[in-house]
Structures are given as structure tokens and as C-alpha cells.
Amino acid sequence: MLYKSPTGIAPVIQVHPLRRCNIACTHCYSLSGPDKQEEISIELLSACLEDAVNLGYRQLAVSGGEPLLYKSLPALLGLARTLGMVTTVTTNGMLVTQNLWTTIADRIDVAAISIDGTPEEHDVIRGKKGAFARTMANLEVIRTSGVPFGFIFTLTQYNVNSLEFIVRLAAEQGARSVQVHPLVLFGRAAYALSSARPDSLELLIALIEAARLGSELGVAIHVDALTVDQLVKFREYFVAESPVTTLVDVAPTLIVQADATVIPLTHEVDSRFHLGSLDNARLLSLAGDWLNSGKCQQLAEAYQRTWNELSNLCPGTVVTWFDEVASRTHDHCNIKPLELSFIMG
């Protein structure tokens, strides 16, 4: 079923159960690394998932940090399955072993493996020589388990030329899909890659390359961006009708950080829109208070403002919708939208 949301899929709760990771990637928006200790207990997350389902969330997306380092990952995925949720896990693939994968393989609907370019490019981003080779070697475990998997490629201002390599690799390795995710300037990326956010031209080229390569190689490629033309045509999928009465209407993606903070939409949303901490209250309670506080309506207004501004741009302009909305939550009186450095004439 195509849900009426920008993603077209059921509302997603994106959980970062920990910030510990075996590496420290330059583009990491969660500032994860080997020395990070933040972790949410399985008890808190279990209650959170139950509440999330009651709120309308139907998909659990687990990342991190490196989710394979979360010892309660099998339990978390198992509970999600019991609750009828679709489960995805995003991993760097370096820690996959037969023993570990066996504990979770029957509880994952899709695995997403992060690949950042050619072997050399990937290793530089990951900050570890041999990272690419290790991930490729471990793919065999995932392949033989039968779990469908895809690649996630972080698009920057400087690497759309590597997309062909990624897609060809996906075709060779049996990956079903490639997700092209524009770099988010949050966490480590905000200072390590501050000039690398892809502008509208690079997003447009990514869309064109995705169409060409997908057609040629038979790999499903999804770019997390859309044209203004699409935004206008499918308005009802992007802007909730007022009054907004449910959380999923303005937060089709809900993020649970490793410090138990609950955030609607993206990490870049202004902190005053955060729902609160699971350490203080259950998700249902946080959501109820948030809906009654007026923040829900303010976020809905940010959606409307964003749509009004973007819909006036040239139809061929390519934007990242959620990021645009998030940027407009930062100062209600002095909006600083993302710089659109290229607009097609």
C-alpha cells in the first residue's frame, strides 16, 4: 500500500540504540565512534516500540553507531516483528560474522550496507584502510542468509561520478537496490565536510544518473531528493492538512537517538521541536504532550511555508524535502532556508 507520506511507505521509527561504532566516518551525522558509550536499554526501547505502533509507526529502522555492536539487537528486532513491523538494519558491514548474523537474519526484512564510493574513496570516508575489502568479504554471509540487502551511498558535492561504480557493484554483488542519500551537515559532517553538501545541480545529476544506470543495469536506485515539479504534483503527500491531529502526519519519520531523545523528521530539526526524552516519559506520553503543546501545529506551518517557497522555484530544481522543512524550523521569525546554489533556467 502506498502511504500518503513523502516516503510513500509506512511511517518509520528510526532508532539509534547506541553511538558506539568500530569506526568514525567523516560524514557521520550521529558523531559515532569507538569511544562513544551512550546506549539505550532494551527495556526503554521495547516500551518505545509498543507505543510507536500505537501511534501509527509501522517500520523500524535500526542504525547507530554500528547496530551490530548493540547486544540486544536480536531482541529489538524480534519485538518489532512480533508487533508486525517491517525491520531494516543499516550497517557498515565490517562486523558481520556467520555467528552474529545468524542471530538476526530471520528478523530483518532488508539490510542496508553503507558504501561510499570506490575502495579508495570508501576507505578515506570510513577512516580505515581496508574497510571496503572487509565489507565486501562479509557480504557473502548476508547473501547466503537470504536476507535482501541494498547499498546506501552518501552523495556529496564531489562524488556523483562514483555512483556508477556503486550501482555496478550492487549488480555484481546481488544487492537489490541502491539508496542515494544526500549528505546531511550534522554531527561530524558539520565540521569535517562543511562544504560538501550537494547543491541542486549535483542532486539533478544524481537523479539523471540513477535513471540511466537503473535502466541499464536493472538495479532499483532511489535518490532521496525530488524535483519541484514532483513536489507540486504530489502536494498531498508532503503537506498535512490542518489541523494536524496525529504525530505521523508531521513526523512520518521519528528518530530515537542514543541519548533517548525523540526527534521528529530529521536530526536537523530545531531542538525546540524535540518531543523529549524516553528517560522521562514513555513515547505515548511525550507524543500526547507534544501534540497538545502547539509544536505540532508550528511544525505543520513549517511544512506549509516550505512548500509555498519551493513551489515557486523552477520546476526542474531538485530539493531534499525533509532537510528544507527542517531548516525552516530554526528561527520562526528569520527563516534561513538551505542555499539553493543552482536553479535551472
Binding site: N159, N161, L201, E202
Partner: peptide
């Protein structure tokens, strides 16, 4: 302010093409 001299991905793509 650091000025980044790396070529855009689209420029590199066109050159390779």
C-alpha cells in the same frame, strides 16, 4: 573560511564520460 578546490562530482563525471 576554507576554499574547497575539489571539482564537483558532475564535472568529474563529464570528464570521465
Amino acid at each position: 573560511m576554507t576554499i574547497h578546490h575539489e571539482k564537483r562530482g558532475s564535472e568529474k563525471l563529464l570528464e570521465a564520460w
